[in-house]
Amino acid sequence: MNPSWQLFLVLIISLEISFTHRLIANLVLIVIAAIILILQRLHWRTYLRLLFLPAIPAAALAVTIGCFSPGHDWWFAAVLASRVYAYVFLGATVTVTTTPLKLARSLEQNAHLSAKYAYGVLAAVNLTPRTISAIKTIRASARMRGIELHFYSPTLYFKAILQALRWSDQLVLAMESHGFVENQSRTVAEPILVSVSDWLIVVGAIICLQVILIAFP
């Protein structure tokens, strides 16, 4: 499916379930998303992470509403907990079926997002592994100068921010030196198409969601 349409659909669905309180709709969404995720044949650790990480906020929400709200409304607690899982699973269907580059290209080509944003964000995403190793390096270099930096040490953040500022300057130079000019039109190496099936899936899914939302509690 086209990455932009997929993202658009997931955003619409997430918005709708945020403003409605329907348990069945949430469960249906979780099941559909789970099937999509299982079909992707991911690493078992990814599945574990998807199952257990949302458990903390979901359980916290459910217990708060179920035990401490005036009405001890366990049904509403279940709605909120299932909503957390629906968000996470739907989001995961986007991230596991596409790459950041493909999404950026699609947003530029199909959603006509400005290339500056699409590639700026992408460049920032590509800096993630560098950021992690930079933090490691900062802490190591501090230790070798006799200073222990903890995760709350201001120096760590000062260095990290400084690093980020320098990177952003260099990134601008890098993009410009590779021919990038703001607002100038670009060609595409990999055309990303929107097919009829994308339309059908989006429209069909939204209609089905309305039906389920209205018909079931």
Binding site: N126, Q170, L171
Partner: peptide, 15 residues
């Protein structure tokens, strides 16, 4: 004009 920089790692926007 195109330029190549001193710091090899910092001249790429993509992966």
């Amino acid at each position: 004009v195109a330029m190549m920089f001193q710091d090899p790692g910092m001249q790429f926007a993509l992966d």
